[in-house]
Design a binder for these strands. Structure first.
Lengths: 343, 343
DNA sequence: CTGTTAGCGCTTTCAC
DNA sequence: GTGAAAGCGCTAACAG
């Protein structure tokens, strides 16, 4: 009852008494171009479907030296921020006929290099990478060697690879302003990975906003070491158990914010009663937290979409501005995690 | 300054005045086996590293007719539940030397079929699939044709493919019991995809728990149509605006629970003051919600790990029990979303 | 409109 | 210890 399955194009062709060339042409949508008869075309298509034949991508890739696929590297696919960017990339890529290979670097530069090697040997047509760590030499080498590439989320000083990031500076500026207009003066900005560019930009936005209100630098508490729940947790504990704790916290991403919540809950404090909070990264649950959290949302869909556009432009061989830097706007969600302080 | 890069094994071999055979053998760790001299081996390895050579996986795959990779299909990678399973699968696979290809089916059987085709033509050595929809014929065909396969999360009646799922029945039973021991009698179980197996199992657990307390069937409110925030939201609105609303809700997954929160908040009701809630699926934020939510946690790490074990066993050609069904235990998190009712 | 065939880069058999 | 060469399945140049 089970249809005898077909190994390769040769078997399929001989079964139909047609040459492999014709079969190949039909299956590659070139029937028109080679003026293959409708009848032959139909026979081939039906047979391919009937026998469940799909071309060996290894042979195809070997011959064509391309794969019609792009590689995506993210530090942590279980962070919905990255997962949603990946979804957007997939959606856009599919429209353009590219398959997507996803790699998880686990915030490890070594693993990132391994993945790029992997992608190279699998002949991806281009790579989108949310870079980890603080060095980009390995990326530039690959890019300079001709691999189309787009960097998202993080960039590096002087990097000459097209980059799409959120407006980290602007988002942080607005977030801090939210705290300032509620008369907070003692504000802690809880960093993620110190040396990373989004972190630096967000800190810059924070500092500039503080200075715009003439808050002396001494009051600016800045600390942290990683974009993780643990880091946010430990830094917050340290801050709130300290001598003169801040009245407001600015968490530089969603995981740090969860760490803040963990620490605040452990200390039996309340938000915003005891301490106010605003966080970078909107999440589905942000509105339903105890207390609903004010956040700065990054436009994940747009970041994904633009990165695919810029990448496929490179793949198509178009002239590009290597130093291109696209800033995607952020959006403030005002909720109830910020207390209005007395002047 | 930039090292001239090497295209293929032939170039590398000729540069070293060594045959491609020897290079291939060294790079595949067969130096020992063919008694290649340490010196030659070192020369080859160093050169490969220096020139950044990595073998063309298409040629390799074409020759070997395998890819040392496995494909994973999930309905929605942006759902942390699946993302975490994928992470676990990646971790396990890496240990065993398999690369992982990830596909997102978007809860669409057509897309699932396309992805499987994709994987087949990319010669993955096996497939792990969190199946969508309510039919499994396409999966069985591929499995019967010899493709190693493991089903996770969902299964289908009478399916003869090894399956790893959470103990959906047991988890639901415990969840419902939590509501019952707090004297709730009018409980709504908000379903996801009606026909899907985890849904069915969870409903079964719910009903059995209800009956164990002699709650008449008439009181069992069951509704819903999809595992999504929207579905949870609409069903909850309908329930709570109805004539005699339930005093407690059992959300059959994390997305539905978020929908419940959305509806409850929109109706200006409180949890657990106005309505109690327990949900399948523990999430990082569950403890920090307004009100901290009681949940049934699925062991995502274990599901991923076992699925890779069962898949690699198949790939290695070991005898397997096709009807194998592994049930991974769940874990109750008691928090404050359930109100103690008067007897 | 259709077919023959070289060759993509690799592994491995067979030969020395 | 090492190498020459066949052949994996496909596409496209060339040939009708």
């Amino acid at each position: 009852m089970d249809q005898q399955s077909i190994k390769n194009i040769k078997e399929l062709a001989s079964k139909l008494n047609i040459s492999v060339t014709t079969v190949s042409r039909v299956l590659n949508g070139k029937a028109r171009q080679y003026r293959i008869s409708k009848k032959t075309e139909k026979i081939v298509r039906d047979a391919a479907h009937l026998y469940g034949y799909s071309p060996n991508q290894f042979a195809r890739g070997l011959k064509l030296d391309k794969s019609e696929s792009i590689g995506v590297i993210v530090p942590d696919i279980s962070n919905p921020f990255f997962a949603e960017i990946v979804m957007s990339i997939e959606k856009e890529s599919k429209k353009k006929g590219f398959a997507v290979l996803i790699g998880n670097s686990g915030d490890d530069t070594e693993q990132e290099i391994t993945l790029i090697d992997h992608f190279k040997s699998r002949k991806v047509d281009g790579i989108i990478v949310a870079a980890v760590g603080i060095t980009s030499k390995h990326l530039e080498e690959v890019f300079e060697a001709g691999m189309p590439m787009v960097i998202i989320d993080r960039t590096f000083p002087g990097l000459k690879i097209p980059t799409i990031t959120s407006d980290n500076y602007g988002g942080a500026y607005i977030a801090t302003k939210q705290l300032l207009i509620n008369n907070h003066k003692k504000i802690a900005c809880i960093q993620g990975l110190n040396e990373s560019q989004p972190n630096t930009e967000r800190v810059k936005g924070f500092i500039d906003a503080m200075q715009s209100c003439n808050i002396p630098d001494k009051n600016v508490i800045v600390t942290g070491d990683q974009f993780s729940i643990e880091s946010g947790y430990h830094q917050t504990l340290k801050l709130l158990k300290g001598d003169s704790p801040p009245t407001a916290l600015f968490a530089l991403n969603n995981l740090i914010a969860l760490g803040v919540l963990q620490a605040v809950s452990e200390l039996s404090l309340s938000i915003p009663g005891d301490v106010s909070l605003i966080s970078f990264d909107e999440q589905t649950y942000s509105a339903f937290l105890n207390t609903p959290m004010s956040t700065i949302e990054q436009n994940k869909e747009k970041i994904g979409k633009i990165s695919v556009e810029k990448l496929t432009a490179q793949i198509a061989g178009m002239e590009i501005d290597k130093g291109m830097f696209v800033n995607v706007e952020t959006k403030l969600h005002e909720r109830q995690s910020i207390k209005k302080m007395k002047k």
